[in-house]
Each structure stands twice: as C-alpha cells, then as structure tokens.
Simulated scan of single mutants.
Amino acid sequence: MKKKIIVGVIIVALVGIIAGIQISAKNKKEITNVKSTKVEMGDVKMYLSTTATIESKNKKNYIASSTAKISSVKVKVGDKVKKGDTLLTYDTSDLSNQVSSAQIGYENALSQKKDAVDKNSDADVTAGTQAGAQTNASTSSAASQNSLSDEKIKQLNYAIETAKITLDSAKTKLAQNSSIISDIDGVATAVNVVNGQTGSQDTALVVQDISDLKAVVKVGKYDAAKVALGQDATIMNNGKSYKAKVSKIYPTATVNTTATGGDTNLTVELDVLEVAPQLKVNFDSDVDILLNQALGVVKVPAQAILTNKDGTTYLFAVRGGKAVKQIVKLGVQSDAFMEIVSGVKVGNSVILNPGSTVTDGIMVKESVVTGGK
C-alpha cells in the first residue's frame, strides 16, 4: 500500500512539472518582441523633395537679320561678354547706299520747295513794282500767274515729308542691321551663325549670366497648394548643397501632352542665394523645399504612427510590459518624424513599425532603438 502511495505522488509531481512547463511555454509565446524608441523633443520639418532645372536669371536671345549678310561673328561659345560688346557685324554697304540715296532725295525735296518759294517771292516783288508803274490788266494777270498757290505748297511739303520718312527708315534699317550689341554681362552660351551667312529663323546668339542662377521646378496640383513665396529651399548637386528661396510662382499651370497621355504642372522658380560653381545651366538638380516646420516640439518617428478607418491616428505605447493603444493628435508631419500635439509625453516608450501581431494589451519585450531608426 505504501508503495502505491509513493508511485501516485511521483505521478502527480510529474504531471505538475509537465503542466508548469506547458504554462511557461505558453506564456513565453504570448510575449511579443518589438522595437521601440522614446518620445523626444526636437524639430519637425516638412519638405517637398523634387527635381529642378538650373537656368540663368538673366538670359538674352538674339535673332540675326533676315536680309543683311553677316560680316563677322565676334564671339564663340564660352567667351565672356560685357554689356555693350559687339557680338556680330553685318555687311552694310547696300544699306549705306540706301541711306545716301534717301539723303539725296530728301535734300532735293527741300531744294525744290526753296526754289519755288524764292521764285514766288521774286514774282511778287516784280508784280508790285509793275503795279506801281502801270495798272493795265495784262500786267496784273501775269503777276498773279507767278503767285505760288496753297495747293502747290501742300504738294511740296508732302514731297519733303515723304522723303524724310524714307530717309529715317533707311537710317533705322542701317542701325538695326549694322551689328548686334550685348544688352547684359555674361557668357556666350550659343553661337548658331557664321561669317557670310544671310538670314536665319533660329536664335543666332545666346548670352547668359551664369553667375546669377535660378532653379525651375514643375509641381503637381497637390504639391502646388503647399508651395508659397519666400519658402526656404536647398539645392543638392554632386554632394554639395546650396541655399535657395522660392521667388516666383506662375499664375497658371501648363498642360504637357505626350503620346501616352499628359500631365498638368505649375512652374515654380527658386533663387540660388549663394555662389554655386557646381550648378550648371540646363542640368537637373535635387531640390528640397521647406513647406512647413515645427521647432522644439514633442515628436515621434513616422513609423510609429498608424491610422484608423475613420482617419484618427494612433500608436502603441509600452506601459508595464504591455502594448497600449493610444490615440494621438498630429501637427506638422514629415517623412521621418511627426509632431505630437496630444496623446503621449516626452520619455514615453512607443513601438516602431507595429505589425498585425501587436494588439492592445499584449505582453511585449522591448528592443530600444536610438533615434527611432
């Protein structure tokens, strides 16, 4: 009998040990490993990251004359140009001859009127003398026929005006087709004509100030509503960054149509605020436009935030070894961090990238991540 009792006790003990092991294993399985980080104070900056084309803020395109022959092209691509420098000259021999011919025509018109007026004055003097000596009808008739009529004066004046217009036109044509002068300081970035060429429908010369640059960005309708004049920006190129600022927002969007469809964009210009030797005209560069920011605020990493179907946002805080679902109100949001207006406090521990296994109230084991990464 005593032997049976001992065997029974041993069996009960084994059952207890096995049950304890099973319970322990079950509890161990219920503990979920999570990565967490601390809620902290800091800055949250919201950027629009996009691509911009670098352009000169001061650019001049010059069209060659369609009639005059180019005598000499004075610059080549890469040459520095000062305002007032001659970029090219024309063969003006024909135009100079036209000015000379028009000048002669104008002087002849003036001479013809002078001769007519002088003859009329002489006739008036003769008529007056003869009228004093005799008053017969034939003498008076001859004097009146020599008198210069108003109609004749109009004709002479019209001839002078016409000759003057012709002369002015010839001079203007000569001035406009004698040379092309640079309006700005800069660099010749395109030369599309050669000596001896006559006429061109394309741009002959381009001068740009490559020391004063801007970045041109195309933004979609959703991002366009966030961009404002004066916003700070950063332009990145070849590992270097340059300060910039939104300086111009076009009043209307443009539609770009392609064979596969089209899109509508708004053009935004940014002034480059510092010397940027790495930036080259017509190259693309990465741009970050600072749309909004909150400085010295409570923040958490963006990967801690989840969204309910009703649009409310929440996260899982860790309290007493458990995951606790916590509704939070957000402020400024960036790709990396979210401003927390309410819901958690600095120093609270929050779970990063909570998957479907993380639910309200489960036991968790933290692996703390510094900086939320």
Rank of each mutant, 00 (worst) to 15 (best):
G20R: 02
I180E: 00
Y222V: 15
T198W: 02
D209R: 01
V73H: 03
D115S: 08
D185H: 02
S140A: 15
S179L: 09
I210C: 02
L352C: 04
K221Y: 15
I70D: 07
V216M: 01
L352F: 06
A52I: 05
V12Y: 10
K3P: 12
K322Y: 07
K35T: 12
A302Q: 13
K164G: 00
A336N: 12
K83D: 06
D43H: 05
Q145E: 13
L229E: 13
S241I: 05
S72F: 03
V39N: 03
D284N: 12
S144Q: 15
G196W: 07
D79V: 03
K226G: 06
Q130L: 13
Q103C: 10
R319Y: 09
S100H: 06
D150L: 03
M236P: 10
G186P: 07
T264S: 09
I63G: 04
V332G: 03
L273F: 08
N308H: 09
G105A: 09
T252H: 14
V193T: 05
N27L: 14
T189W: 08
N136D: 14
I165H: 11
V255I: 12
G296V: 10
A143Q: 10
D232K: 11
V34A: 00
A102E: 05
N292F: 05
A302F: 11
G196K: 05
D288C: 01
L315F: 08
S111H: 09
K38R: 08
L174I: 09
Q293D: 10
F337G: 07
I21P: 10
Q278S: 13
D122T: 15
N195K: 02
K69Y: 01
T267N: 09
G8M: 11
M363Y: 14
I235W: 03
V75C: 05
V300P: 07
N120I: 05
S342R: 02
L290N: 04
K113A: 00
S334M: 07
S121V: 12
G262F: 08
K2L: 15
D310K: 01
L87H: 05
A109I: 00
S72P: 02
E151L: 06
A188D: 02
I180M: 01
K243M: 09
K45Q: 14
V99R: 01
M1F: 14
V341M: 06
I6W: 10
L291W: 04
L279I: 00
V358D: 05
V341D: 07
S179V: 09
L110T: 11
S140M: 14
T86C: 04
I104V: 15
K226Q: 13
K76F: 04
S71A: 15
P301I: 07
Q134K: 13
G361M: 10
S72W: 03
K299Y: 05
V77N: 07
I11T: 15
K365C: 09
F337A: 11
G296M: 06
N27H: 13
Q333E: 13
V73R: 01
I180Y: 00
N348Y: 13
S144R: 15
A304D: 01
S169N: 11
T172F: 11
I235N: 01
K82S: 14
A175L: 07
G105D: 13
G372D: 12
L229S: 12
T312A: 06
T234N: 04
G347W: 09
Q293G: 03
I6N: 03
M338W: 14
G186E: 05
I362C: 12
A224C: 09
N61W: 11
S149R: 00
A304M: 03
S49Q: 12
K35Y: 14
L14V: 13
